[in-house]
């Protein structure tokens, strides 16, 4: 059992606050992805869990044990680094065996574990080679094998796929998911790639400016963003946000359409909808078509709505031309509302 609990962890570098009091609990065997743009603090948080960075305040617990005062080697963790950090002066075998030798495991056990993890990562034919003789993808595999060989409670991954080319990334992504699920470890995985996050995670913690904005399952994060940032950061193209004006108690006008919405004292709030959650019809938001991009399965239409850009993903059969006036009907159960000041969901 290795549940990770991060309690009110903050990190300041001089006058700059990288993390504002983070609270996050990661269940045993859960695959948690920390997602955010560069500089949001996700790597700092991971390094604090690893012990490579000291928090300015707060506690880190792993498996019911407080670890924030312990060196990395006493935390029961293994880590995969962004640049792999495969030692250049050691063979692949010795790289994978590095942590086991530090633990002073008997030679027989070292060999057994290295062979097993090398087979798991399909690098058993590379064991005698040096890092300089490997491709990026192979180094990545060595780095993962080295972490798995430790049979750790927790595996920490810092953008492990970001240095691979697109095709290899896709392949490794699927493989990582399988291997890590089978290993039954708790995983924290840092990435700025939302597709990677969606495809791998049991739960995604979306981070922005040193705070966790939302921590929920991929579908929940996508469907019910807790804040405007989440809606615009996740999803490609991002969620559309347009202003809504109050017309009654719980009734709002959005681009010529009156919709039932939250009860609020505010006069103006924001209406939000995913591009794929609108249909072109006789009723709906007034939109003027600006750009039409047929993408095969569907067509991406960029329109003017209330003077702002609005993207809609429509059926490719629809005959739409630039300059057309459309009525885009939002699916009622997919509409979300944000407070324009706090940007939080209403």
């Amino acid at each position: 059992m290795a549940e990770i609990a991060i309690k009110q962890v903050a990190k300041r570098f001089g006058g700059f606050t990288a993390l504002h009091s983070i609270d996050l609990t990661i269940a045993d065997q859960e695959f948690m992805v920390l997602l955010g743009a560069s500089g949001c603090g996700k790597t700092t948080l991971l390094r604090i869990v690893a012990g490579l960075e000291t928090p300015s305040q707060g506690e880190v617990w792993i498996g019911g044990r407080r670890v924030d005062h312990l060196p990395p080697r006493d935390r029961g963790i293994a880590m995969v680094f962004q640049n792999y950090a495969v030692f250049p002066h050691l063979t692949v075998f010795e790289n994978i065996a590095f942590g086991l030798r530090m633990k002073k495991l008997p030679q027989q056990e070292v060999e057994r574990r290295v062979t097993r993890t090398a087979e798991l990562m399909h690098i058993e034919q590379l064991l005698k080679r040096y890092s300089g003789q490997l491709s990026g993808g192979q180094r990545q595999r060595v780095a993962v094998a080295r972490a798995l060989a430790m049979e750790p409670d927790v595996i920490l991954m810092d953008e492990p796929l970001s240095n691979l080319d697109a095709l290899l990334r896709l392949e490794m992504r699927a493989e990582l998911k399988g291997v890590l699920a089978a290993s039954k470890t708790t995983t924290i995985y840092v990435t700025h790639d939302q597709v990677e996050a969606m495809s791998l995670a049991d739960r995604i913690a979306v981070m922005h400016q040193g705070r966790i904005v939302q921590a929920a399952s991929p579908v929940e994060v996508y469907r019910n963003p807790a804040a405007r940032f989440v809606g615009s950061f996740i999803g490609n193209p991002p969620m559309n946000c347009i202003p809504a004006t109050k017309t009654g108690n719980g009734s709002w006008t959005v681009a010529g359409l009156t919709l039932p919405g939250p009860k609020s004292d505010k006069h103006r709030i924001e209406f939000a909808i995913r591009p794929e959650d609108v249909d072109a019809g006789d009723e709906g938001l007034h939109a003027t078509v600006r750009v039409v991009e047929p993408l095969g399965p569907h067509t991406l239409v960029t329109c003017d709505v209330e003077g702002g850009l609005f993207r809609a993903i429509l059926e490719s059969s629809a005959a739409i031309a630039v300059g057309d006036h459309l009525r885009l009907a939002p699916k009622a159960d997919r509409i979300r509302w944000f407070d324009p000041e706090t940007t939080n969901a209403l």
Binding site: R73, F98, M102
Partner: peptide, 14 residues
């Protein structure tokens, strides 16, 4: 590169 030292640290080297 600093990552080598960090990797060694994580993997148990004093």
């Amino acid at each position: 590169p600093r990552e080598y030292h960090e990797a060694a640290e994580v993997f148990g080297a004093s």
